[in-house]
């Protein structure tokens, strides 16, 4: 897992609409990277649905959530529509999981996806806080995010 105080590795990935998004686009703002195993798994759906419910309160803290998984951006678009969420979802698709690996979130074969990991990146692009779930089947409640932002 990447360490607090490290420079957050920059990346450029496609969002759910196929547009390129870079971490450096968020410079000057705080962003919470939400690594997760994959679209349409029941737990992932719960995670983003619950985060959506408290999105206004997270925004009040001046933080944007950005989801990252190994799914294609087509899958992200369908997942976003299914859940009725508007959280930006980035596609860590090719090379598969490269960004998750850079943050120390990737779970190697036979799993082959990111663990549920939260990484708060500060205005200067440094890692300010991290959280890693004990296993991919458990996701951090929204309270964990608010604890990090308090």
């Amino acid at each position: 897992m990447i360490a607090v105080g490290d420079q957050a590795p920059d990346f450029t990935l496609r969002n759910q609409d196929g547009e390129k998004v870079s971490l450096s686009d968020y410079k000057g703002r705080r962003v919470m990277l939400v690594f997760y195993p994959g679209d349409f798994s029941p737990v992932c759906g719960d995670q983003f649905s619950i985060y959506q419910e408290v999105k206004p309160e997270i925004a009040e803290k001046g933080v944007e959530l950005v989801g990252i998984s190994v799914d294609s951006f087509f899958a992200h678009q369908a997942f976003q529509e299914k859940l009725g969420i508007d959280t930006t979802l980035l596609s860590d698709f090719e090379p598969k999981g490269e960004v998750a690996r850079a943050y120390g979130s990737y779970l190697d074969a036979p799993l082959g996806f990111a663990n549920r990991t939260l990484v708060l990146v500060d205005e200067e692009g440094k890692v300010a806080w991290t959280y890693e779930s004990p296993n991919p089947g458990e996701f951090p409640g929204a309270n964990v995010i608010f604890d990090a932002l308090s």
Binding site: V43, D46, Q47, I50, E53, V54, E138, F139, P140, G141, A142, N143, V144, F146
Partner: peptide, 12 residues
């Protein structure tokens, strides 16, 4: 109620 659940870590 919802917010008390969020604070208690309700995740489903």
């Amino acid at each position: 109620d919802f917010q008390s659940g969020i604070r208690a870590g309700v995740a489903g």
